Amino acid sequence: MKHLTRNSVPFITAFLFCFLILGCEGNFRDVQKMGFAEFSPSGDADDIDLKYTDSGRITANLISPKMLDYSTVEYPFTEFPKGIHLTLYDKKGKETYINAKYAVSHKATNIIDLQDSVKISNQNGDMLETEQLYYDQKNEWFFTEKKFKFTSPKGVSYGEGIDFSKDFKKVNSQKISGEVQSE
């Protein structure tokens, strides 16, 4: 009887261990699915070309290879993980071009967070380059606290922190780290 009990202990221990692992695994997967489902996109689109209009006039054209819509989460947003090319049109038809390798549009605030090699330019030859730039869609205003390079027909300037209108007519820079240099 002692021989049978001594051999039974490892068997019973292994059986209980397997039972606990299998029982916990099922619950763990359910918990993972609950957390994952909360941030799963409710919409997914490839190769998009969206045109925004106001009173029959095109105000913006958004092109992106990938769009993920998270409109069902508590703070809805749209993500562009493969970047965007956005063209904004003013009332006179002048264009402002924006390129970024990544972007997130927050629906509640109407702010677009542009990241990674952000470039914004216009038809007058003005161009700003930075690593992150925010666009307030309601006020048509750009701003960043990051370092930037601003190129215009007058020359090049560098700084940190800037905000400006989409047509570059109103520009407020916080820290200019050098003089305007002609190229």
Rank of each mutant, 00 (worst) to 15 (best):
N7H: 14
V9M: 12
V9A: 12
P10N: 12
I12P: 04
A14N: 06
F17L: 14
F17C: 13
L20P: 01
L22Y: 10
G26K: 12
G26P: 00
D30A: 14
D30F: 08
K33Y: 10
K33M: 13
M34G: 12
F39K: 11
P41N: 14
P41Q: 12
D44C: 12
L50Q: 02
K51M: 10
Y52E: 08
S55K: 11
I58H: 00
N61Q: 15
P65W: 15
K66H: 15
L68Q: 15
D69M: 15
T78W: 03
D90Q: 00
K91D: 08
K92N: 05
K94C: 00
K94W: 00
K94E: 00
Y97W: 07
Y97R: 07
N99P: 02
Y102F: 14
V104L: 06
K107Q: 09
K107V: 05
T109C: 02
N122S: 06
Q123S: 05
D126K: 06
D126G: 01
Y135C: 03
D136T: 06
D136Y: 06
F143D: 11
E145I: 08
K146Y: 06
K146I: 04
F148T: 08
K149S: 10
P153I: 12
G155K: 01
D167H: 02
K169R: 04
K170C: 07
N172Y: 04
S173A: 11
